[in-house]
Amino acid sequence: MIATKEFDYEPGEHESEKASNSYLMSLVAIIAGLPLPIINLIATFAFYMGNKNGTYFVRWHCTQALLSQISMLFVNSYGFWWSVSIAFTAEEITNKYIAFILAAIIFNLSEFIATVYTAIQTRKGKHVTWWFYSEITNLICKANK
């Protein structure tokens, strides 16, 4: 699911730090944004916008970090509003709801672990690519000609 690959060039110390920060940003935002799933996406998007004119390595990892947030946003938002409807309307807790929340926790936890690992490796200047997300990132993020 996660692979370390050769990047087009050897990233510098400053680049590795910035690229690693994009993952850390999403982690901090996950913790801060737990009650509202949109917050981590907004924070990562803000970091992405701030670095869109950065070097290829930085841009590439900011994009991958942002994309990984988007897919979880759907799951978390659905879970969030389902929980809100249980708390404030006549909707009842069902087996399906508990199963959904547990599935969401499993996927969020996997993403959390992967993000921590990627942040550490990227800080070392390694090019960590995620299954699916790296393919999309390659389509979106192109090297400066």
Partner: peptide, 10 residues
Amino acid sequence: WFLLNQISWM
């Protein structure tokens, strides 16, 4: 989700 739903969490 489907597999987790097979367990009676309630």
